[in-house]
């Protein structure tokens, strides 16, 4: 469903439903605060560098900003990497600044996980996008192949890890999250 420049996907609504259901207090706040800070990390440099947000998508995988008019490789890599860097910065801030708020440690953990996860060289994630841009900028002719390989390798490692954890902990949540991420597009 689209309202103005904001698109809400079914997956987003489902994600909110699941989180509301599982929430033991502040989980919903922590997840969305971390996602919001991450996107602001993209948005502010994008604006500063003269980019424009064509659409904001609320998907099951989180918030997605769709940009119009390419900025050029250098600036685009900057705005792509600014998201995870912002997440890591806020992770440090929340973990080190005492007495900010009650949820600061969970928030620090979420920002750290979010930032690190987004740096993985997977096509859908910031790390993969930055790699793609960098390879294209360097004139590489096999960008698609390279990304397919890194994506496949990372997904295989993550799937193996999730499977192991699910088996070890009898906890299906990570495995379910993995299946969900793999099938969301």
């Amino acid at each position: 469903m689209t309202a103005g420049r904001v698109t809400v996907c079914a997956g987003f609504v489902l994600l909110v439903a699941v989180l509301i259901y599982l929430d033991q207090g502040s989980l919903l706040f922590v997840v969305f605060a971390a996602a919001l800070l991450h996107e602001l990390g993209h948005y502010i440099p994008l604006k500063l560098l003269g980019g424009r947000v064509a659409r904001l998508e609320l998907t099951g995988g989180g918030l997605n900003m769709v940009t119009s008019q390419p900025l050029g490789y250098g600036k685009e890599i900057l705005t792509v990497l600014a998201g995870p860097v912002t997440s890591l910065g806020f992770a440090l801030l929340f973990s080190l600044w005492d007495g900010m708020m009650e949820e600061q440690m969970p928030l620090a953990g979420m920002c750290l996980s979010h930032g690190v996860f987004n740096l993985l060289p997977v096509r859908e994630l910031d790390g993969g996008r930055a790699l793609e841009l960098a390879l294209n900028a360097a004139g590489c002719k096999h960008t698609r192949t390279v990304l397919s390989v890194t994506t496949a390798v990372m997904v295989f490692i993550l799937a193996a890890l999730c499977g192991y954890l699910a088996w070890k902990t009898r906890n299906l949540s990570l495995a379910l999250a993995m299946i969900y991420i793999l099938t969301r597009r």
């Binding site: 992770a91 440090l92 929340f94 973990s95 440690m105 620090a108 750290l112 996980s113």
Partner: peptide, 10 residues
């Protein structure tokens, strides 16, 4: 668990 991750980072 996320809080523990935050503590670990600190």
């Amino acid at each position: 668990i996320l809080g523990d991750v935050g503590d670990g980072l600190r």
